[in-house]
Amino acid sequence: MRTVLTDVKKIMCTVRRAPHGSIYVQEGLEAALIVAAYGAEVSLVFMDDGVFALKRGQDTQELGTKGFAAAYGALMDHDIQCVLVDRHAMAVRGMTEADLLSIGQDAETGELRWPRVVEAGEIAALMAEQHSILSF
């Protein structure tokens, strides 16, 4: 469902918890998709333990849970272009850009899309521009 709004609101979802140990990453992705479907300009930011949600090769089959692959694939469909990950949070957790998973494909070119690794200052500046921020 798409609701027509007079002005587009910027809404950020911050994901700060590790995946699989709790439901928050899954809910954060779902909320980002729905807020985008309601016409907001959504940014999705992975900070602190949230960066582990972007690690490639996650396999939840033995846990018997769904995993997030489908949700990541839907980000592009919902026009969520701004997917950021905090460089420092990755570094202190021993992650590099090579560890990141792709977050879908460009509909036109077919090119793989990746989260953008940024400094805390850029995230803080983007936070300041938001209409509101949902925490996960």
């Binding site: 609101k9 729905i34 309601y38 907001a40 509101s132």
Partner: peptide, 20 residues
């Protein structure tokens, strides 16, 4: 109701405050 209600509240309000 669904998450859409949270989306609408968030968009329509001047402020969102999260507790948890």
């Amino acid at each position: 109701a669904g998450l859409g209600q949270l989306a609408m509240m968030t968009i329509q309000a001047d402020r969102l405050v999260c507790f948890g």
